[in-house]
């Protein structure tokens, strides 16, 4: 289940409307590599993901993508707020306006409506994670293209933030795809030991040194006692021998 937080993940406050650039940015809402497709992709894939940690990663990134399309929608909404009919006509926003007025509707920049074919849910760990890696790079490229087209710093800041998130997600999906992350029980146990050793290594070394010292003392004592006992017996033997002779 989900809870809503009444704030955006990153501030969006745009003071200059620009319906032309809004038509470009809306692609990251309902376009082929948009945030809506990303969120639905990860949240759909997680049910058949056999590894708990990777299913968790899909849930957490899918949740973050929900916050991202909220930001994209906020950008588009603020870029088209209170437009006059003249501005709408002049900017070429009229083709969107005629069907949706100034409401948000998921479509690509070219007007193609959002479609579930824009993401894959294949039910195979390697296939799904490789799909996710590609999806993050496609989204990053789309943000690169948006940054090439946008000049307004109020729009660039949140777009740059969203672009950086795609790179972090790529890194995490790549780590999830490794044999030694969650797919190998053996390595997981080794990781626990490694981590334990890193934290406790000074204590372990300390105990080891004291153990050796203690053993050395024990051995020394035993050798000394045995030697003394032997000398004592030899002495007694010699004494007895002298008594017998005399």
């Amino acid at each position: 289940m989900w809870n809503y937080e009444k704030r955006l993940q990153f501030p969006v406050k745009i003071t200059q409307t620009n319906p032309k650039i809004a038509q470009v940015i809306i692609s990251q809402y309902g376009g082929p590599d948009g945030e809506l497709a990303a969120s639905m992709r990860y949240l759909a894939q997680r049910y058949t993901m056999p590894y708990n940690t990777v299913a968790g990663l899909l849930t957490d990134i899918g949740t973050e993508e929900l916050a991202h399309f909220e930001m994209i929608c906020a950008i588009v909404y603020q870029l088209t707020r209170n437009l006059t009919p003249e501005e709408i006509e002049k900017s070429g926003f009229d083709k969107y306006y005629v069907d949706h007025t100034l409401a948000l509707w998921p479509q690509a920049a070219g007007g193609i409506p959002f479609n579930a074919c824009e993401f894959q849910s294949k039910g195979d760990v390697i296939t799904d994670l490789t799909e996710d890696l590609a999806a993050e790079q496609k989204a990053r490229t789309t943000y690169d293209n948006i940054l090439r087209l946008v000049k307004d710093p109020e729009v660039c800041e949140p777009i740059r933030f969203l672009r950086a998130r795609e790179i972090v997600h790529f890194q995490r999906f790549g780590e999830a795809n490794r044999e030694d992350c969650s797919k190998s029980e053996h390595t997981t146990k080794r990781q626990i030991w490694n981590n334990y050793y890193q934290v406790h290594s000074p204590v372990i070394v300390h105990l080891y040194i004291w153990g050796i010292a203690f053993q050395a003392v024990l051995i020394y004592n035993t050798v000394l006692e045995t030697t003394l006992l032997f000398c004592h017996r030899v002495k007694r033997f010699c004494v007895r021998l002298s008594i017998v002779r005399s």
Partner: peptide, 18 residues
Amino acid sequence: DFVLKELNLYLDTHPYDQ
């Protein structure tokens, strides 16, 4: 909250990093 989100994703792939 952003730091928390980053640590959340980091821990998903490094679940034993105390």
